[in-house]
Design a protein around this nucleic acid. Structure first.
Length: 119
DNA sequence: CGTATGACGAGCC
DNA sequence: AGGCTCGCCATAC
């Protein structure tokens, strides 16, 4: 079985960085594509981050579900099917959605990797 | 090596 | 408030 980090080593450098970061997101917390891009040193590479997750295979051990857009909404694929799955996974993690189907980023946003917190 | 794409983001109408 | 357009960057072809 390949771990998330092992899989990350099989993809391009940037993707690997994205996956490595995503893999560190704890349950019950979420982050945005743009935020990940910032942590990676590319504040405007949000699209690339989304593209990286887009390349993830179905059934991977990567907690891709914890990555949402800056609006606190699920972007996922355009498929409503995957959107429902992602939402279910997040709710299972303890993340709550409001009546509009949005997540309160002020409350559930991940503080970021410990390596960047001065650990 | 140039063009097209994409699970984004911020700005504008 | 909600929808549309442009810009951003890194891959894929």
């Amino acid at each position: 079985m390949k771990s998330a980090s092992a899989r990350a080593a099989e993809v391009p450098n940037f993707y690997a960085a994205v996956y490595r970061l995503v893999a560190q997101i704890p349950p019950g917390k979420v982050t945005t594509y743009g935020q990940i891009a910032r942590w990676l040193g590319h504040p405007s590479a949000a699209r690339a981050v989304g593209y990286a997750l887009h390349a993830l295979p179905t059934g991977s051990d990567m907690p891709w579900q914890r990555v949402i857009n800056a609006s606190g909404r699920i972007s996922s694929r355009c498929d409503r099917h995957y959107e429902a799955i992602q939402r279910a996974l997040l709710e299972a993690d303890g993340v709550r959605f409001d009546a509009y189907g949005s997540i309160d980023l002020q409350r559930f946003a991940w503080l970021g990797p410990s390596a960047l917190k001065g650990d």
